[in-house]
Simulated scan of single mutants.
Amino acid sequence: MALVDVFPENPFTPSLPYASAAQLPVTVPWGGKALQMGTPLIVGSQPQDTQFLEDRCAFSSDSLKKTSLTFRHVSRGMITESNTHTAAARHEHTSFSIQAQIGGSVIGVSGRGNYEARGATNQDDTAEDELTPQSHGQIVNASFRTEYQSGWIGFVSPPRLSPLALELLHTHDDPHTAFRERFGDYYVGAYLLGGANAQLVSSNDIAASASKDLSGKGEVRFLGFKKEKKFDSHEKADAAFGQIRLTGYDSLEAWECDHQENEDVRLIHQVADENEKRCRSLIGRVNGKVEMFQLKDGGVVSVELCEGICRAHLVVQILLLPYKKLREYAVAVLANASGTDAVDSGSHMASTPAGKA
């Protein structure tokens, strides 16, 4: 794939085909499915063509067993709040993760995928003939997004390529294409541990009271919904709110919501309050699971423990590394080009989350 062929329509929106063509390490959100380190991913031109090749590992099975995995502790996070009054500003309510570009079913995390897709395309779902004469024809959006990473699990050093992988690189007339068709573009190089939580409320901007309650005038956290706030009959009416929709997810609990109301906003209010509690407790819940698995900085992590960590939804993202950045890969291709049988006796290039794009 040439860069010009896969350049994204919106350069501010990440594209996995473009990242693959540029040989960039990438991170994508993950769900509760167990995924073995070293698993290959092939990137298709269409989302449905992108898939993990779990039965075609490019690494030697013996090397995979002998290569140690380690946990490294970090502590970093991000909280973002946005309040807008037009669908044109919808990009402020998403992180535009690459996950949204390849489909939630591919990487096993539907909650975040649904939220990203909704946030990226959010617009007035009410037909013009359904709007009241008082309608302003705008959308009021209020959102918060919270992400926290507590550490990562990765290879101490990359495992060795399998004899079949090396044979393709040493002998094939087009080694890059032959390798890609068999083993894909990327391999799973690390699990990033943590959690993510987000919530987006959208409504027709029909009355000043509705706008105020949704946006919070930019000074109240979590959408401006106050627990002591009592909605009166006027605020519940269609003429006050029009359509109201809540979309949200919590990666650590595998919770997601996409609910729409036309009349009574009490349910939306209740769900928003409950997810606010999840958001406030995200760091504590993540650290609690890290302690449950007894992960220590610099400690060795077994393959069996990694499976349990994945199923506990503690892997918030996975790091995908391109094969072409492996030293062993590069040396084999050079040997093929020069017509020699040179074999690299050294190690691979360093591949850790610290070096990702």
Score class of each variant (00 low, 15 high):
residue 6 V to L: 12
residue 8 P to E: 02
residue 23 Q to R: 06
residue 37 M to N: 06
residue 37 M to A: 07
residue 37 M to H: 08
residue 40 P to L: 07
residue 43 V to W: 02
residue 49 D to Q: 15
residue 55 D to L: 13
residue 56 R to A: 09
residue 59 F to A: 06
residue 72 R to F: 05
residue 79 I to L: 13
residue 82 S to A: 11
residue 90 R to M: 11
residue 96 F to P: 00
residue 107 I to A: 06
residue 112 R to T: 09
residue 118 R to F: 13
residue 126 T to R: 10
residue 131 L to I: 04
residue 139 I to K: 09
residue 140 V to C: 10
residue 143 S to V: 03
residue 152 W to L: 01
residue 155 F to S: 06
residue 155 F to T: 02
residue 156 V to Q: 10
residue 159 P to F: 03
residue 164 L to N: 13
residue 168 L to N: 09
residue 181 E to H: 07
residue 185 D to E: 04
residue 196 A to V: 00
residue 197 N to C: 08
residue 200 L to R: 01
residue 201 V to S: 01
residue 201 V to I: 13
residue 202 S to D: 02
residue 202 S to Q: 03
residue 205 D to L: 08
residue 206 I to T: 07
residue 210 A to K: 06
residue 211 S to W: 08
residue 211 S to Y: 13
residue 215 S to I: 05
residue 219 E to S: 09
residue 230 K to C: 05
residue 243 Q to M: 11
residue 251 S to N: 11
residue 252 L to F: 04
residue 257 C to R: 15
residue 260 Q to D: 07
residue 261 E to Q: 15
residue 265 V to E: 03
residue 268 I to T: 13
residue 273 D to L: 14
residue 273 D to V: 05
residue 280 R to M: 12
residue 285 R to V: 00
residue 286 V to A: 05
residue 300 V to E: 09
residue 307 E to L: 00
residue 318 I to F: 02
residue 320 L to I: 05
residue 321 L to H: 01
residue 324 K to T: 08
residue 325 K to C: 06
residue 327 R to K: 12
residue 333 V to A: 03
residue 340 T to V: 13
residue 349 M to Y: 01
residue 351 S to H: 13
residue 356 K to L: 05
